[in-house]
Simulated assay, not measured.
Amino acid sequence: MHATVVIFPGSNADAEMIHTLRDVLQVRTSTAWHRDAELPAGTDLVAIPGGFSYGDYLRCGAIARTSPIVPAIRRHAERGGLVLGVCNGFQILTEAGLLPGALTRNAHLRFECRDIFVTPRAEGPFTSGLPRVLRLPIAHAEGRYQADPETLRRLVADRAIALQYCDREGVVGGDANPNGSAMDIAGIYGGPRRNVLGLMPHPERMSQPFQGCADGRAIFDAVLRHAHAGRSASAAASAP
């Protein structure tokens, strides 16, 4: 698999994303700058890391969506290419229209920086085979997912709610929700093949045991399995 990490002015989790993909998972990893008009050739996975793109002016991700690289990301997603947006990356994906809804100020108006728990709610490239509960860190002030009632109904009907906040036992609701997100949403799927995932927690910050927990690696392992399965299927189909 070939991954490309897209870097915007103000990104601050790009080094962690690159380290996780390149050094932990041994994935070929390139970078793209916000001014680039195309992704590196052969990109399978686009990863948009966390941070404060353009200083979060106007709204988180609102300026980043106008960057020259975004149309290339959109074309990649429309072709079924994998896209992962973490924290500010999730915000950019919603602002760019690649995912529905919006990430707004946390309900209590405080920045949240702590470990939380999530539970997978949908099958897809990034969530198949995950444990029932994952411990992951968050670091955001605008992580409250909101959408109109019809969009929320559609997410439920399409089984596009990828991850929900929960307690350590996997129970959703109540104080387990750190930001007031509608339906306790921590991450959602989009794209023609559920190939686009946006989530507020940072799996790349818990991908190795020395980080206190390696639960985040499971998300990357899932997408690696998906990519390898796809390549195997393509090879079998093209065999004489």
Results as ranks from 00 to 15, higher is better:
His2Leu: 14
His2Gln: 14
Thr4Glu: 08
Val5Ile: 03
Ile7Asn: 05
Ile7Arg: 13
Pro9Val: 09
Pro9Ser: 08
Ala13Gly: 13
Ala13Val: 05
Asp14Gln: 10
Asp14Arg: 00
Glu16Phe: 09
His19Ser: 12
Thr20Asp: 00
Thr20Gly: 03
Leu21Gly: 03
Asp23Ala: 12
Leu25Gln: 13
Thr29Trp: 02
Thr29Val: 07
Thr31Val: 15
Ala32Asn: 05
Trp33Gly: 07
Glu38His: 15
Leu39Ile: 10
Gly42Trp: 04
Gly42Ser: 06
Thr43Val: 12
Thr43Ile: 09
Gly50Ile: 10
Gly51Val: 04
Ser53Met: 07
Ser53Asn: 04
Gly55Phe: 00
Asp56Pro: 03
Asp56Glu: 03
Leu58Trp: 13
Leu58Ile: 15
Gly61Met: 07
Ala62His: 12
Ile63Glu: 13
Ile63Arg: 11
Ala64Phe: 10
Thr66Lys: 12
Pro68Trp: 02
Val70Leu: 14
Pro71Met: 01
Ala72Asp: 02
Ala72Arg: 02
His76Asp: 11
Val83Met: 07
Val83Thr: 09
Leu84Met: 13
Val86Thr: 13
Val86Gln: 02
Val86Tyr: 01
Asn88Arg: 05
Asn88Val: 07
Phe90Glu: 03
Gln91Ile: 09
Gln91Gly: 04
Gln91Tyr: 05
Leu93Lys: 05
Thr94Cys: 14
Glu95Gln: 15
Leu98Ala: 06
Leu98Asn: 06
Leu99His: 07
Leu99Ile: 10
Pro100Cys: 09
Arg105His: 14
His108Gly: 10
His108Leu: 14
Leu109Pro: 01
Ile116Arg: 08
Ile116Pro: 08
Val118Ala: 03
Thr119Phe: 11
Pro120Ala: 04
Ala122Lys: 00
Glu123Ser: 15
Pro125Tyr: 05
Phe126Asp: 02
Ser128His: 13
Leu130Arg: 01
Pro131Trp: 06
Arg132Leu: 13
Leu136Asp: 08
Leu136Pro: 05
Leu136Gly: 10
Pro137Thr: 02
Ile138Val: 15
Glu142Gly: 00
Gly143His: 11
Tyr145Gly: 00
Tyr145Cys: 05
Tyr145Lys: 05
Ala147Tyr: 09
Glu150Thr: 13
Glu150Met: 11
Arg153Ile: 12
Leu155Phe: 08
Val156Arg: 14
Arg159Gly: 15
Arg159Val: 10
Ala160Val: 04
Ile161Val: 14
Ala162His: 01
Ala162Trp: 06
Leu163Thr: 12
Leu163Glu: 08
Tyr165Ala: 03
Asp167Val: 10
Asp167Cys: 00
Val171Pro: 04
Val172Lys: 01
Gly173Phe: 02
Asn177Ser: 02
Pro178Ile: 06
Asn179Trp: 09
Met183Ile: 11
Ile185Glu: 00
Ala186His: 03
Gly187Tyr: 00
Gly187Arg: 03
Tyr189Thr: 00
Gly191Glu: 05
Arg193Gly: 10
Asn195Ala: 06
Val196Lys: 00
Leu197Ile: 04
Leu199Asp: 07
Leu199Val: 02
Met200Leu: 09
Met200Thr: 11
Pro201Gly: 01
His202Ile: 06
Pro203His: 08
Arg205Leu: 06
Arg205Lys: 01
Met206Arg: 15
Ser207Pro: 06
Ser207Phe: 06
Gln211Ala: 11
Gly212Met: 07
Ala214Asn: 11
Ala218Ile: 03
Ile219Arg: 04
Ile219Ser: 10
Phe220Gly: 00
Asp221Leu: 15
Leu224Lys: 11
Ala229Ser: 14
Arg231Cys: 08
Ser232Pro: 04
Ala236Gly: 04
Ala237Asp: 12
Ala239Phe: 12
